[in-house]
Amino acid sequence: MLGRVVGRLAALSPEPTDQELLDAIARADDGEGAFAALYERHKTFAMRVGRRFAGDEAGAADAVQEAFLALMRKARRGMRLRGKLTTWLYPVVRNHAARARERRRLAPPVGDEPAAVADEGDDLASVRGAVDALDESAREVVMLRVVEGLSVAETAAALGIAEGTVKSRLHAAVRTLRADPRLRAYFDAG
């Protein structure tokens, strides 16, 4: 079903922008298809953020669902993007995920499922281990800037910090990563 509606939109425009899709939702002009396309485009980003901050699978899923419903409601009123949609999504998913984590702390679920663990090789495990060992503020910048591919300005917007702060945090993070023996091969080769 998802593939069909995305395909229908693709037939109208080669690759509609996020703003065009939001406008379609506001006009109720194939709003379902437009929303599905937006969800398809940004769900992996949202889920990565949700998993990082919720700490469990159910909390992450709740956060993603709540965030996209909030997006839908906002889009229906007419939403004007002033940057990438991901810079809007990031704090919304993070807050919902933090709320889910807090709920879980207050009422731990019975038989909770573990968070998804990637089936990865040694190199990737080392990379994850090194980045996960960074402090939260440095890790956020690395994730947004490198993994999600946001620009410095977009990363600053998502985090609500200055662009200079993004750069300094990234430099500090890279310095830490460079000192991590697990990543020596990357830096020696570079």
Binding site: M47, R51, A118, V131, M143
Partner: peptide, 9 residues
């Protein structure tokens, strides 16, 4: 690549 699986829904 390392964090790609975290985005699976």
């Amino acid at each position: 690549r390392a964090y790609a699986p975290m985005g699976r829904t």
